[in-house]
Design a protein around this nucleic acid. Structure first.
Length: 220
DNA sequence: CCAGACGTTGTT
DNA sequence: GTCTGG
DNA sequence: CCAGACGTTGTT
DNA sequence: GTCTGG
């Protein structure tokens, strides 16, 4: 079956990410050629005064009301078409948007019984950013703590993230009918701004990335 | 009205 | 916590 | 929200 | 047509 954004890569050093996103370095972001759901992944979040930071979130969003955090295992992606309304996602969409740095993502082409992996990346090799939303679950401070983890007052809180999806562009369409939302640099500001309540403007950012800058490599 | 879901389409 | 399905 | 009931306990 | 049960 066709894949979705259930695998991506980030083989960048922490320093390179810090440079690309203009944020202080995190302690350690190990380069990875293949990132899986439930792993901790780096994200870029923005605080009150426009201060951006690298953070870490578990991939697979656990809604604030969840009784059992294993529900996050199936919340890898959020459809951009419905993310503003879905009970599981709308709070995160309204208040906790982030960027998820990547330098490639994988989709599987269904060919009869076979599934052939493809890797998509920027032709120029640069890293890019998925649109993400994140949530905080459990811990001591409830769910309304400040947007930077590892801060004070949220012992044992689990911070999780989901990657938004949209229709495929012309590069991806031959392989799969969905693709992750990749935000161009011009969209990073409005997407990250926690004060941005213009949901129509936000939704307008969630469109297929331009086809031309993306390359597709058939693997195997 | 209550019970059950709450998501996407996904290869650890 | 809120919506949906029955 | 939709499907299904919607009545009584009775000699035409 | 409206209420109830699920």
């Amino acid at each position: 079956m066709a894949a979705m954004c259930a695998r991506y890569s980030l083989a960048r050093t922490d320093a390179a990410l810090a440079d690309l996103f203009g944020v202080p370095e995190l302690a350690s972001v190990p380069p990875r050629e293949m990132i899986y759901p439930t792993q901790d992944v780096p994200v870029v979040v923005e605080g009150p005064r426009g201060v951006r930071r690298l953070g870490s979130r578990r991939w697979g969003l656990v809604p604030h009301w969840a009784d059992d955090p294993t529900i996050g295992q199936k919340m890898l992606n959020a459809r951009s078409e419905t993310v503003a309304e879905k009970p599981s996602f709308r709070r995160a969409f309204a208040a906790r948007r982030c960027l998820v740095p990547a330098d490639g993502f994988f989709e599987w082409l269904k060919d009869g019984k076979a599934r052939i992996p493809h890797r998509f990346a920027r032709a120029d090799g640069r890293a890019f950013a998925f649109a993400g939303i994140w949530e905080r679950w459990g811990g001591r401070g409830g769910n309304e703590a400040p947007p930077h983890g590892s801060g004070a007052g949220d012992d044992a809180a689990l911070e999780t993230v989901a990657i938004l999806t949209t229709l495929p562009n012309e590069t991806v369409a031959p392989v799969h009918d969905r693709m992750p939302v990749i935000l161009p640099e011009t969209a990073w500001g409005p997407w990250l701004d926690p004060e941005n309540r213009d949901t129509a403007a936000l939704a307008a950012l969630l469109v297929p990335f331009a086809a031309a800058p993306l390359s597709c490599m058939r693997l195997r």
